[in-house]
């Protein structure tokens, strides 16, 4: 099967995508046939039997067993066929190959976190090797989300009280969109991620890299890159405009009013606390929805973020 997608479908990036597209096309062609049949017949009859002059008596024929059996049995056979081919592939889509790498995917409003087998983690970008089955073990920390990669033709709801599973085997190196497909609130449409498919070697290298703390980059610059890679930018702007959380512009050194009406000065300790225990002191006017980064950021990374915030003066 061709794996480059079809006229309508997006590019096929996984092993099963071509098979899904084949079924999609099958149903599409059958549907087009029936659509032309129905609309064509209607148009033909309307033209041929249009009313001319005063109406008279018309034919009283109101049944025809052969015809009626035909339009009952033929569609029944077709739908059973659709059901069978569709369900066989569905089972295949649900059975995870034994050699799959397991990556833990955590969804929360409004970001994706990925934990790899040997302890590495990433936010919003899932790095996977090409030609290797990957099992995504999904769970949510708040409401229901859905893990949707159009180019892989997979989608699975991410639930707060149990694990669900999705798997795929990417066939080409490249970047693919990851959407949240179950409505989850204000940031739903910005809960975007990427699946970055890399070669086997690049994957190994990436895993090793992620354990090294980048000592070379200046703190401020490192913080800016973390601001993006750790998805702070989903909820905090740097241009002073409002969003889900307070803007970072000029926040350092300022006093803010908390939801319990106390005031606090934004200093190094407050920023650190807010990263590790975000719900402890929430700025008034904002919802306590930020997830904790406890265990997800190393000290140097927190230092870098603090340095970055300091640089965002008004």
């Amino acid at each position: 099967m061709d794996t480059t997608g079809t006229l309508l479908m997006p590019p096929a990036g996984s092993t099963i995508a071509g098979e899904v597209d084949a079924i999609f096309n099958l149903i599409l062609y059958v549907s087009i046939f029936f659509f032309i049949l129905i609309v064509g017949l209607a148009a033909f009859f309307v033209f041929k039997y249009r009313r001319r002059g005063e109406p008279g008596l018309t034919s009283g024929v109101d049944h025809n067993i052969k015809l009626e059996l035909l339009w009952t049995i033929v569609p029944s056979i077709i739908v059973v066929m659709f059901f069978v081919v569709g369900f066989r592939l569905f089972l295949k889509m649900n059975i995870v190959p034994a050699n799959a790498i397991e990556i833990k995917v955590t969804a929360q409003r409004w970001m994706w976190t990925f934990d790899y087998p040997d302890g590495a983690n990433s936010v919003n970008t899932m790095v996977v090797p090409v030609n290797q089955p990957v099992k995504a073990l999904l769970s949510s920390t708040d409401v229901i989300h859905s893990f949707f990669v159009p180019d892989f033709r997979i989608k699975m709801d991410v639930l707060p009280n149990r694990y669900t599973v999705a798997w795929f085997e990417a066939v080409r190196i490249g970047e693919y969109n990851l959407f949240c497909a179950e409505y989850c609130g204000k940031g739903h449409s910005e809960m975007l991620g990427k699946i970055k498919v890399v070669s086997e070697d690049d994957y190994k290298e990436w895993l090793e890299e992620s354990f090294k703390v980048d000592e070379s980059m200046p703190l401020e610059e490192y913080g800016e890159s973390l601001y993006r890679s750790r998805a702070c930018n989903t909820c905090h702007t740097t241009d002073g405009s409002g969003s889900v959380g307070p803007t970072f512009k000029g926040i350092y050194g300022h006093q803010v009013i908390l939801s319990d009406l106390k005031t606090v000065t934004v200093d190094e300790n407050y920023i650190r606390e807010s990263i590790l225990d975000p719900r402890a002191k929430v700025v008034a006017g904002f919802q306590p929805v930020m997830p904790t980064y406890q265990g997800r950021l190393r000290d140097r990374e927190i230092d870098a973020l603090i340095a970055y915030l300091k640089s965002l003066k008004e």
């Binding site: 098979e19 599409l28 059958v30 549907s31 569709g86 369900f87 592939l89 889509m93």
Partner: peptide, 11 residues
């Protein structure tokens, strides 16, 4: 039909 078919509905 596309939605009743499990495999295509997933997408």
């Amino acid at each position: 039909m596309f939605l009743a078919t499990t495999a295509t509905d997933i997408h």
